[in-house]
Simulated scan of single mutants.
Amino acid sequence: MHYPDLAAYDYLPEEHFTDREPPFGDVSFRPAYARLAVGWLAAGRPYPVGPVPAALTRRLAVIGAVQRVNLCLGYHECDLCPPGQRPPEGNGELRVPGAPGVAYAAPVLIGHYVTGHGYRPPPEFVAAVLAVDVDAWSRSRWPELPFPWIPADAKYWDWTVE
């Protein structure tokens, strides 16, 4: 799937955040904030290339380790990798808080696109990623970690309760 950078993200009308560790559960809600697409690349579509801050990919890895957003059935293989090379797979998305009322929506493969294909995300996104408190994000998870886009009244579904 391709979205131009900073276009309105409208692939899924609801957000689904899933725990990465036990006890497993998730929270679903209809977002009341703007979601802007970043890094939705596709073979045959041009994308910006160039240098990025070294900390960007490290921070994207931490953000990806904390979140499981909009997981789907199956995986997406990078279609930018050359034939004959085993491409990395991804499932799900990342959210990065932007300006008030805005979150950036990126595929989990965005770090690979940066390191493996020279993709240069928009400066607004880079600044937002660099502003994330990765120490706090790596020590906590929702609901202890207050992702700014999850409403306080969102319903948490505990999968361990039958």
Rank of each mutant, 00 (worst) to 15 (best):
G116P: 02
F125N: 05
P146V: 07
A54W: 08
L56A: 02
P87N: 07
V69T: 05
A103N: 09
E124G: 13
L80V: 07
V126P: 04
E89P: 04
D158W: 13
P82V: 04
Y33R: 01
Q85A: 10
G84I: 11
D135H: 14
H16E: 10
A37C: 15
A99K: 12
L56G: 08
L41K: 08
D79Y: 04
A99S: 15
V126L: 03
R20T: 15
P97I: 11
G101W: 11
A99V: 14
V96H: 02
P13D: 09
A105I: 02
G50W: 11
V134L: 12
P4S: 14
W40S: 00
P13C: 01
L71F: 06
V27W: 11
F17W: 05
I150C: 13
R86W: 04
L80Q: 01
Q85M: 07
P97L: 08
V102T: 15
V62G: 05
E144C: 02
T115W: 10
G111M: 07
W142Q: 13
Y119P: 11
W157D: 12
Y11P: 00
Y119N: 06
E14C: 08
L71P: 11
L130P: 01
A103F: 10
D26E: 15
D79F: 00
L6V: 08
V114D: 06
V161F: 14
P148T: 08
N70E: 09
D133H: 01
A103I: 14
G44K: 13
V69C: 06
L12P: 03
T160W: 03
L36H: 01
T115S: 11
G25F: 09
R59N: 12
Q67D: 12
A131E: 07
P143D: 14
G74R: 06
G92E: 04
S140I: 00
R35W: 03
H2W: 09
P100E: 01
E14I: 01
R86H: 06
E15N: 08
D5V: 03
G84L: 08
G74M: 01
P88Y: 11
Y47E: 02
V108Q: 06
Y75I: 01
K155G: 12
L12E: 14
V132N: 03
Y11C: 04
P88K: 07
Y119T: 03
L6W: 10
L56S: 09
Y104V: 06
G116R: 00
V27N: 12
V108R: 08
F24V: 12
V62R: 00
W40Y: 09
Y9H: 14
A65S: 15
G25N: 07
C81Q: 05
A152Y: 12
G44A: 13
G101A: 07
P46K: 10
P107C: 02
E89H: 03
F125S: 03
T115E: 15
L41Y: 09
V62K: 00
G116E: 06
K155D: 15
M1T: 10
D79N: 12
R141V: 05
D133V: 10
R45V: 13
G74P: 08
D153C: 09
D79H: 09
E21T: 15
L56Y: 02
S28W: 14
G50R: 08
V114N: 04
W157T: 03
V134S: 07
L94F: 14
